[in-house]
Nucleic acid binder design. Structure first.
Lengths: 343, 343
DNA sequence: CATTAGCACTCGGCATGCATGAGTGCTAAC
DNA sequence: GTTAGCACTCATGCATGCCGAGTGCTAATG
């Protein structure tokens, strides 16, 4: 357990290092207004903190820098989540201004976020928002298997084969597809399933014997994994951070940034709420000297995507955590409105 | 005027330097298969070439590197434009595959280009392709001035005030706007003017007295400057070039890349055909050590936008020029088809 | 017993000097 | 006109030494 004084010193060191990116020496700590100990005392405490794994030295006689464990402790115990922040108002203002398309909402969010923080922002969102059903087709493959094909207006094709239950005869299937095509043409993909369940169930049952059974077999096509899309903001912001003075780091970082799949899978698993992953806690090599903060947003109570900020481990955790928190609820709100205003 | 031998040596030096990024010495030139002179002879020639401004030294006893003037000569006299290239087939194949939206066509072109060349590609295209007319409104400001407002489905607003000629009375104007709204709703912005002129002139003349005069005054709104959009490919490709070993160069380069306005204005003025701008011929500081190659593409004989490649002055001019040439005609073709298949 | 002053020690950063080698320019010979 | 030879130049890399920031330890202090 840390003493009151150790806590204070740890906090000062981390805050200072986050600001200056320079190792912090005992003398400079002793000079701070809220510190009333001599450098020697502080040195002793620092030695203890280092022994406990919260601090590190860059070389044997350097000042101290926070270790990843130190950051972890800082984030878990010293950062008040949900602090008030002026930036929330900024976000709210921008979000309310002229956002007509989903893509636009997300893209500007990413840009705002990166501009305020000077880090790189990444937003993971569903890709299907603007894609609509163009055509649905069912092709019989053999006596009891068939292939369902779903084509969107963007040319994206989704297909799945399924076995046709005996209860369904070919003409029923055809009828069903015809009606579906007729009624669902132009419906956004992400609303297909809902629309079918809510509005068309009765109708379908009227025309097709035992519709629900047939639909069970088709459902997979309608509920297929949403392809996801990444939106970036401030991709080059990290260039300005002193930890990226080494050109090789820059290179490996940006070649990783271009691997969208990798990043997508990184963000996909994000848990609800805010999560901070520090340095080597990240599984991907290229960001083992970075921290990743993720927050999720939702639409109508369903988790929709993830907002993330990528910065050096020496990150302004306080500011960033508050900000992400605010933005994620704000985005959920805007999306709620957007959803209910669109068809 | 350069002698045959000087030409040969210049060519060898530039090719070699483009490949290796290292100053080229006389000995290494003499070793090449097609060179039958001793290093000393070559040194003499190189001294002459330097005096004429085609070569430079990095320091007093280094090998030679091409000067910008050298590159210029190389591009103007030694690169055969319209050379056959395997890549053309690659481009053609990709372009023919599943391109359904204008944005997609352009974006993939940019990506293909950067992937093939390892430079950064920039495409300047009109932004209005997917925007359609939502509403047209005319508001009378005073007795003989009015304001025309055009709203698109993306929420973009275009407006212009104009003086109302005496020949037109208010009710005519109103009638006209009503009809226009009725008939033009949902029409892509870039087709507005054409559609009006081709299909609706008779109709309008039937309902509105002296339509053509009124329209003269409105035309400005319909023909307003297309806002443009930039598409990038391989933004981080240049990181891999050895000339970007200096982190400050990287920084200034990328902060320039983020200034979209600046780049847009750089590409906007591009002349028809292929144009190569080498090093300090560029007006923007951050790319004074880069070369910019631009090509324009068109749609139905009208110049539509610009494709550009940005790389170090030590650029594979031969390859790149052929490629851009091919891509620009290919894009014009695809766009032609796209245009004629869409509504 | 906690705190602090003092001092020897460590290490990164920077300047300096030196050897090496790639490459040149010039001159004289072919 | 071409080439061999040689003195010269300069970037690069390595060893050396110095400075200053900062530490750990010990002994003195309250």
């Amino acid at each position: 357990m840390l003493t009151e004084r150790q806590l204070l010193i740890l906090q000062v060191i981390i805050d200072d290092f986050i600001e200056t990116a320079q190792p912090v020496g005992s003398r400079s700590i002793a000079k701070k207004a809220n510190i009333n100990y001599s450098p020697a005392t502080i040195r002793n405490e620092m030695a203890d903190l280092e022994e406990m794994g919260y601090l590190e030295k860059t070389h044997s006689s350097s000042g101290r820098i926070p270790s990843e464990r130190g950051y972890r402790y800082y984030v878990d115990h010293m950062v008040l989540h949900r602090e008030a922040a002026d930036n929330i108002q900024i976000i709210r203002n921008i979000m309310q201004d002229g956002l007509f398309e989903f893509e636009q909402i997300v893209q500007s969010s990413a840009e705002i976020l990166s501009r305020i923080t000077n880090y790189t922002s990444i937003i993971l969102g569903p890709e299907v928002f603007d894609t609509k059903l163009k055509q649905l087709q069912i092709i019989s493959l053999s006596e009891n298997t068939a292939l369902a094909i779903l084509v969107t207006n963007t040319g994206h094709v989704e297909h799945r084969s399924f076995s046709v239950p005996e209860a369904i005869n070919a003409s029923d299937l055809e009828k069903m597809v015809n009606i579906l095509n007729d009624r669902l043409h132009g419906v956004p993909i992400f609303k297909l399933h809902e629309k079918l369940n809510d509005e068309m169930l009765d109708l379908m049952n009227k025309y097709v014997t035992d519709f629900e059974t047939s639909y069970d077999y088709l459902k997979a096509v309608f509920l297929s994994e949403n392809p996801v899309k990444l939106y970036f903001g401030g991709k080059t912001n990290l260039l300005r951070q002193p930890e990226f003075n080494d050109i090789d780091k820059v290179r490996s970082f940006y070649s990783m940034i271009e691997e969208e799949d990798e990043i997508a899978s990184l963000l996909k698993g994000a848990a609800d709420g805010i999560k901070v992953t520090i340095g080597h806690e990240n599984k991907v090599d290229a960001i083992k000297e970075c921290s990743l903060i993720t927050a999720t947003y939702e639409m109508n109570e369903e988790q929709m995507g993830t907002i993330a900020l990528l910065g050096p481990t020496r990150m302004e955790y306080k500011k960033v955590i508050t900000l992400l928190d605010a933005l994620s609820t704000e985005m959920s709100d805007v999306l709620y409105e957007w959803y209910n205003n669109n068809e």
